[in-house]
Write a protein that binds this DNA or RNA. Sequence first.
DNA 1: GAGCCCTTGTG
DNA 2: ACAAGGGCT
Length: 483
Amino acid sequence: MPNVSLVWLRHDLRLCDNPALHDAAQQGAVVPVFVWDPDGEAPWQPGGAHRWWLHKSLQSLRSDLEAAGSRLILREGPAEQALLDCAESVGATHLHWNQRYEPTLAAQAQTVADALNAAGCTPVFHETQLLHDPEGVETTSGGPYHVYTPFWKKVTGHDLLRTDAPPLGAPDLSGTVPDAWPDSTSVHDLRLHPKHHDGTDWTGGLADTWTPGEAAAHERLQYTLNHVIADYETERDRPDHDGTSRLSPYLHHGEISPLQVWQAVTDWADANDAHEEAKPYLQELVWREFAYHMVHHYPTIPDETYRDKFKDFAWTDDAEALQRWQQGQTGYPIVDAGMRQLRETGWMHNRVRMIVGSFLTKDLLIHWYHGERWFWDHLVDGNLANNAMGWQWSAGSGADAQPFFRIFNPVSQGERHDPNGDYVRRWVPELRDLPTSDLHAPWEASTRTLRKAGITLGDTYPKPIVDHSQARDAAMAAYDEVR
DNA sequence: GAGCCCTTGTG
DNA sequence: ACAAGGGCT
């Protein structure tokens, strides 16, 4: 009977550069297991868009594993029970997994480790989620960083990134296989297919936009190298262009590792003598590192305001305004375009994320937590650390936040970053026939222009939910209170 | 303790 | 020009 190891797959749904899979394969037979255990991740159970992606990703991984002579065992939680049962049924001596830094997932893994240890199955964990260990990056005086730029300088200037060894290849899983496989449910029976809150199916837009899976991740990486990185510094601010990597959901589900991306981009920079061009993109990967660094050291960041001063901030409780923001009916075209892009595709351009974030927290004075929750449920790339950090940054309550007085103007942001109006016309088609000069502020268009474009404000498209100039003054006054 | 610096801006 | 204040070396 061969030595058998379980590999507990979580947000690492790939064969290549997967240390848990790789090490387990070197020790004998491997049983890859995925456990659907949303309650084990409470209070941050995976959102709807995440579930849709996961469904596709598991199908892809299962077929990749089968092509490699292995299988994917699917179970439902609690994770520790499912894994114990699998371990006993195949006589596994070890359980391998890749460590996670989300507080919820780290806690879940601790429960699993305790349960398996007690049953005589040795837990072994590996590092691959990040390019560095959050415990290993400290300021000169000791302690975690709270500001991005010194963090960037530290990790890139002191070889603190785990980038010296090349990514691992695909493991050989067909050499030794277990004598028998544990029972498995089907992807379908996990019932991951999401519905909108109002019961409608939203997955058509997701399917039109995305191809989950490891192979697709590498295709998109190749596209990024060929078409994105060189002009990333300026193009990343153009939501009307395909100027970003769109690798975030693949990274989130672990269909590609940050090391694979980092190595590919730096190799590209070497080959093209283009290190300056590559830097802004690499900095984004380190922002992801920084977000996990923060959530590791401050695990309440997803749930609680980071800066104490903001604990007493006078947020408004306006359910109707929140709903109009969620549905993309604020009357500010760039905001509505972003929120509709999110609802339909599970993704929003980062520039627009900042604009809608500023709008919710500054113009509407609604608590960032509502934005975080909505994004969590609708983003295919919604990872806990980035989402929490982004929202607290927008609100001004987070680490290294924008100054409170920096309140995005949704009109000038639209004009600057969507200068031809292509993005707004794509997502807010009822404004399609407005001239570009009026597109980002339809309420300022003449009656005649509106009529010619077939628009009746308040009927075919909302009037602005707030007057930005007044809202700005109100926000400044409210923020003055917590300064 | 001094001095430098700070993702993405606005009117 | 302006907008604070605090992180970091």
